[in-house]
């Protein structure tokens, strides 16, 4: 799996754990897993960004003189890149 897709997978696992923790806020095993996923995600993002630049564009990324937030592609646009 490409590195970006692995980060997506952790993003998703964190959303799913978040919903589970809403109704099980004191489940220690789940809290532990939640932290593991968050740490793993941080590590992957760090590794990704060292190689390829920002994982997801946000309004704070200004590259040189350009406000890169507005750069294509937007998420609904089909693109072949992975």
């Amino acid at each position: 799996m490409a590195m970006k897709e692995r980060i997506y997978a952790y993003d998703f696992a964190i959303v799913e754990m978040n919903l589970y923790l809403d109704t099980h806020p004191e489940d220690k095993d789940a809290l532990c897993l939640f932290h593991q996923y968050q740490e793993k995600r941080e590590q992957l993002i760090e590794a990704y960004e060292a190689q390829f630049g920002p994982y997801i564009s946000n309004v704070n990324d200004v590259q040189g003189d350009k406000f890169t937030w507005i750069c294509d592609p937007w998420p609904w646009e089909y693109s072949k890149e992975v």
């Binding site: 997506y8 998703f12 997801i56 937007w74 998420p75 089909y78 693109s79």
Partner: peptide, 12 residues
């Protein structure tokens, strides 16, 4: 806003 989809949509 996060500039990504929750799950990819790539329809050829």
């Amino acid at each position: 806003y996060e500039k990504k989809l929750q799950y990819p949509v790539k329809i050829a």
